[in-house]
Amino acid sequence: MVWEAIARRLPHIVLPPPSIVLVRLAQDLLSGKLVVALLGSLEALVLGLALTIVIGVPLGFALGRNRTLAEMFDPVLNALYAIPPVAFVPFLVIWFGLHLPARIALVFLMSVFEVTVAVSVGAREVNPRLIDVGRSFGARGFELTRKVVFPAALPFVFAGVRIGLVRAINGTITAELFFAAINLGAIMNEDATRFDTAGLLTVIVLLALLGLAAQAAFARLEARIVPWHLRPAA
């Protein structure tokens, strides 16, 4: 409401009112322009996130269950985490060029730390009594990890991946703007050169909705897979 009221007084180039943005969003979705771009963007998102899960989750478990490893690499992880991912962009250009591999790499970099840290906290916090029970039933090593530690830490894995997912969406659009402009990033660039603020806001709103929808969908999935753990509302 405040936005609508303020925006009606300003010229539309500066800040278009939400009514215009919503109409535009519906138009562009129906015409397929945004849908095509969105599907294109999802490619880097899905591949990057998959890479994050494949690397971040086992790494998190290793750090969470092994104190020596944790003490050795916690400072390194924290230090890397403190670097803004976008600062890696020139580096990624040198290594991966400007196209899909670079985008995947940025998505990966932006999401992997969150997932690793969350999973390692989860694996560390597993109730020792559960592990004792497993031991007394003769579970050892890998079996213990698979049957006791993994299910017990699963809620943390989900929490980590949920945050990672939002960060990955973030990384996707960042990559499309900072490397060769493509998909949604290209639409934003075009809109920007045409002073089309409504178009820009349309993409931003779409991305925000995508993030919220992904989070909600993920919460559902979590409720189905780990019904024993009721996560307190964030």
Binding site: V86, V166, I169, N170, T174, L177, F178, L207, G211, Q215
Partner: peptide, 12 residues
Amino acid sequence: GIVTSIAALVPL
């Protein structure tokens, strides 16, 4: 606001 990417806001 939490899920909005800062990079996406930059052109705007």
